[in-house]
């Protein structure tokens, strides 16, 4: 699948934003982050910016962005529609929670509950994003049980790293927040490992034989394309990445999204003051950069069944 920048940026940015929102709300309810209204501004502010930037980017690749409102209408069947609705609905509890905390200094009692509800909505939104991919049967590398856990884990990992960096910068480091980030990063690393293992060892049930129905005659080989130059289908669905590049990029993603953030966060737990804050910030930066690479691979390594009609021997 063609790795379109708008979608890669959208899923990474919004994912991190929703993860941060969810974890801030939970940590605030549990009293692990500063109660000051200013902390609401510096934590929910970036979360909102990441979410909004992602959502705006996602409308960039539309043929008719001005009609985007129509995408809220088919929640009965479409995960894309459900995602749109979930994304918009999340803004409600998020706004109430953020305004009460930032401007009235209230993050307790009923407002904590509103915050927890916002966290739930944020998680549901990330889930619906993942389900858009998970539900596409023609793409074996997406239509499997590892897609959704990966999206959720990476959202919490990047959100957790951001929250840890924020409390460090704030000067009120909390071991619990750092440890939570470590746990999410480790979980994301494990799930990504299982995902890669899955797509390396399995393939789609569809073959050139089933695509043409000619299997009864024996092996089916592609002889001639319908046209000389690439068409929309090949550009959009036929993107292929060389195996050796995939191996390298996976290593980059592993190191940047998981290994470095884990080590840096662990280091920040042991350090104090400025060095600890710097380590935590670096962990968040690497985590997000690595997730961008991971997301690029999620698209680039996905093989669409239609390529069977254009010479692929398996998908």
């Amino acid at each position: 699948m063609h790795p379109a920048f708008s979608v890669i940026f959208f899923t990474t940015s919004s994912g991190a934003g929703y993860g941060l929102l969810a974890l801030v709300a939970v940590a605030s309810a549990l009293g692990f982050v500063p109660a000051s209204g200013w902390f609401a501004v510096v934590s929910l502010g970036p979360a909102t910016a990441l979410i909004v930037a992602g959502l705006l980017a996602s409308t960039l690749h539309l043929g008719h962005p001005e009609r985007a409102w129509r995408a809220f209408s088919q929640v009965r069947s479409s995960w894309l529609s459900r995602e749109g609705v979930a994304a918009v609905l999340t803004f409600l509890p998020m706004a109430v929670f953020g305004i009460a905390w930032a401007f009235c200094g209230r993050s307790d009692g009923v407002f904590a509950l509103v915050g927890l509800f916002a966290a739930l909505c944020a998680t549901v939104t990330v889930f619906t994003t993942a389900m858009i991919y998970r539900s596409l049967k023609p793409i074996h590398q997406w239509h499997n049980r590892w897609t959704v856990p990966n999206y959720l884990a990476l959202s919490f990992a990047t959100g957790g790293l951001l929250l840890d960096a924020l409390v460090q910068i704030w000067g009120r480091p909390q071991a619990v927040v750092g440890i939570a980030a470590l746990v999410f990063v480790a979980m994301a690393a494990y799930l990504k490992h299982r995902y890669w293992n899955f797509i390396d060892t399995t393939k789609s049930a569809s073959t050139p034989e089933s695509a043409t129905g000619l299997g009864a005659r024996g092996k089916v080989r592609f002889l001639d394309a319908p046209h000389t130059e690439e068409n929309y289908l090949q550009k959009e669905m036929g993107f292929a990445i060389a195996r050796k590049h995939a191996v390298k990029l996976r290593a980059i993603a592993r190191h940047s999204a998981f290994h470095l953030p884990f080590l840096l966060t662990a280091a920040s737990l042991l350090l104090t003051g400025m060095p600890a804050a710097l380590a935590a910030v670096a962990a968040a930066v690497f985590g997000i950069a690595g997730t961008l690479v991971e997301r690029w691979l999620f698209f680039a390594e996905a093989k669409h069944a239609v390529t069977l009609y254009y010479g692929a021997s398996e998908v």
Partner: peptide
């Protein structure tokens, strides 16, 4: 009413949909 999100073309295994850019 189509917003040109291309998702339907991803969902078709047969390559029957082409986007008019």
């Amino acid at each position: 009413t189509c917003i040109g999100c291309k998702l339907c073309s991803w969902a078709c295994p047969y390559g029957a949909r082409e986007f008019d850019a």
